[in-house]
Design a binder for these strands. Sequence first.
DNA 1: TCTGGGGTCCTAGGACCC
DNA 2: TCTGGGGTCCTAGGACCC
Length: 423
Amino acid sequence: MYGLCDCNNFYVSCERVFRPDLEGKPVVVLSGNDGCVVSRSNEAKRLGIPMGAPIYQLKELVEKNGVVCFSSNFSLYGDLSDRVMSILRQNTTRFEQYSIDECFINLDHIPAQEQKPYCERLVKYIKRGVGIPISIGIASSKTLAKVASKYAKKYKGYKGVCEIRSEEQRIKALSEFAIGDVWGIGRKAKAKLETRNVTTALQMTELPSSVIQYLLHKPGLLTWQELRGLDVIDITELPMKQSVTTSRTFANSITEQSVLEEQIANFCAHCARQLRTQHSVAQQIYVFAHTSRFRTDIEQHYLGELITLTMPTSNSQELIHYTLIAFRRSYRKGVLYKKAGVVLLKIMPESAVVPDLFDTKDRSKDKRLQQVLDHIDSRHGKRAIIFGSQMSPTQSQTAPIFKNEHKSPLYTTDLKDIITIKS
DNA sequence: TCTGGGGTCCTAGGACCC
DNA sequence: TCTGGGGTCCTAGGACCC
């Protein structure tokens, strides 16, 4: 049996840990650049604030009801996520983290009739110890456990834990569960199933497998089996990410090359640092930048360049160097760039790199330098020391690049001294 | 005026091989 | 007139997730 543990309204709950006065009030957390609503308290949901809505469209509703808005604060959410996850990890023999606020725990080390009370104690313990409310769904497959967790969240009477164990419970739960809410059924799959008059999860399980295979292929078939109680979806925790992305939307469009390059260098450095923390290297870089897709008054422009390196690396300086070369290949003067990003691909463990006989670079020297820089970073905080390319050489940009007007405190020391080195 | 960010898996089709 | 069969690997794009 699995327990799917899901933090309730996670980002909002994180903000409330430090602001208990906001309990019972409508609260939302916004995406980067204070754009869209990405997390809502129950009160905000009740006001009809939809997930993903641009906040500027809700101005009136927000003001009228005193909705409290927060900019996203990912170091805070990551921190609280780690605390919740480490408790759950200690309470199972098999732990699989699925996202920042969700994980599956195996419950087979506990007798069947004890599993529900055990999970109820976990819910209480995490609320008391970390301050985050969670829900747990118990079932024999991951998809059914997700269904159960939705019921646990929906009805107060469950005290945060709902289980689907008997066949009767499974039929009952699925017969009232909308097809589009099933894990793995997105917009397209929902539409296809509706042409076969399927609107509930139960009706999907009643279609023959051949029809599911024809309509939805392998992923759909797996979901179908899971809904029937079979445990077939594997969430193998990849020890290493297969790609690393850093991208941002700017508060105002950027046209100036030097300003854009500074941002792109920053994105690249951020990716490279992530690579090093997982002791891996990348052999490909994809850099992109484009105009706002919502603007109809200007010509859309999309820049995307892929570079393959002869030697995979995690060295910031080297990655920034090639990223900027790629970027300059297609930067166009006068274009209003609204978003940009860097993706590192072809990732492999550092230990798997085979030295190149004809390599002209002194890699051990580069590595030692990088280690010193990382050491300074870890001691004095991120961006304590940065490359020159990460700072704009021109001062013409006066408007802020990003918007974060409602960010909660970081509870970490600010760095005043910034050392710059030539890159 | 203003509209997020970061991932994974699967499939079809092309290139290439014998 | 008529142009095979079987396989692998890679890539781009679609779909989905939180």
